[in-house]
């Protein structure tokens, strides 16, 4: 049973997208990855329902193909 809301819900997607990209400016790859990790942890905790987060994780993983560098 899908709990994750996947209909468009953000009023100003461009603005939020820009803010996320902007937050990564001046950050190297490792720091950028850490920033994303913090964002995920904060949001996961806010959502508070591991089922929802797992559903999001599944979609993210399913839509990401393993690259050539993956063993």
């Amino acid at each position: 049973m899908a709990k994750l809301k996947t209909d468009p819900r953000i009023a100003d997607p461009d603005g939020l997208y820009e803010a996320i990209i902007e937050a990564h400016r001046d950050l190297g790859e490792a720091e950028g990855q850490k920033l994303d990790a913090k964002l995920i942890l904060l949001l996961a905790n806010h959502i508070g329902d591991a089922e929802v987060v797992r559903e999001a994780l599944a979609i993210a993983r399913d839509t990401t193909e393993a690259g050539p560098e993956t063993a």
Binding site: A30, A37, L41
Partner: peptide
């Protein structure tokens, strides 16, 4: 790997100011 280090360090850095992160 790099991703698991990023998450590990993210948890630790957040834990200083965010009580929720301490449980991680």
């Amino acid at each position: 790997n790099a991703a698991s280090r990023a998450f590990r360090d993210a948890v630790l850095e957040l834990s200083e100011s965010q009580a929720f992160a301490r449980s991680w």
